[in-house]
Design a protein around this nucleic acid. Sequence first.
DNA 1: GTTCCAGTTGCAACAATGATGCATTTGCAA
DNA 2: TTGCAAATGCATCATTGTTGCAACTGGAAC
Lengths: 142, 142
Amino acid sequence: MLSDSDLRDLLRTHDLRATQSRLAVLRILHGQPSPSSHPDVTEALASNGWDRSTLYRNLTDMAAAGILRRVDLGDRVWRYELANASTQHSGNDHPHFLCTACGDVSCLEKVDVTIGGSVPAAVNLGHVAIQLRGLCDACTEA
Amino acid sequence: MLSDSDLRDLLRTHDLRATQSRLAVLRILHGQPSPSSHPDVTEALASNGWDRSTLYRNLTDMAAAGILRRVDLGDRVWRYELANASTQHSGNDHPHFLCTACGDVSCLEKVDVTIGGSVPAAVNLGHVAIQLRGLCDACTEA
DNA sequence: GTTCCAGTTGCAACAATGATGCATTTGCAA
DNA sequence: TTGCAAATGCATCATTGTTGCAACTGGAAC
Ligand SMILES: [Mn+2]
Ligand SMILES: [Mn+2]
Ligand SMILES: [Zn+2]
Ligand SMILES: [Zn+2]
């Protein structure tokens, strides 16, 4: 659990000013079980009056600084999650699963993917982002 | 190698009319080593004067009919490839690799991906689309 | 070969997400 | 407390995807 002062320190140690909107964005992302998109964050903070371009730059700037991880699940939407902090999911990089029916995202933190065959060298070094898409259990049953 | 008459038959057997623009789209896709996007196809056929919404519907309709396969590589762009015809790549479904630096797409037709751990049931049944993203060999060297 | 109509096209909009230039405001170090 | 680089608010644009509707056409039926 990260306190308000923790979040402030997180920003300062990454050379970013601890502005009100950045703190609000971090509070939203902290504790989310799966990554949130820019539209998600904009809607969540709609009542606060932040401009969507401010929130957009908050997300991209914090991702560029390494505070957030930007993930692309293959549905034309960037999503962001805390990269290292103690949050509801591990700070380590991990694959994600996107349900093609309901859009739900799950973090596959304990999944092991092995890739064999003729692939770019970077893949064999583990420098690869893996995305899985299909039907989630709920949508399979339905 | 598919002849013009082959392409015409391909459309007719799928209950689609063999229109000039559909034939032009199939000619473009046939022989491509990797899937093409709607903007790709629009640009390739720019001199022919086809409207982009016509080409858009050509692609989506032929994908819905099963002539094309629509793939999503995680960069907010739909791409299309021939689904079954004898083309430069196998008609079978296969994972794709997207270079995050140069945008190049490669078809991983001989790659074996094993997934273990706690995943949705559909994944263990092989009902899953797998996308790999990272640096291609050319961009790794550069 | 001609006719006819459902299927298809061209055009004009619109939606969603992402991105940026610039004047004004603010965080924070001095 | 002040000064200024960093950040914001607002306007505006880009890209990709999507749809309504009137006009046109492929091809089956004759
Ligand atoms: Mn995650
Ligand atoms: Mn392919
Ligand atoms: Zn689902
Ligand atoms: Zn590359």
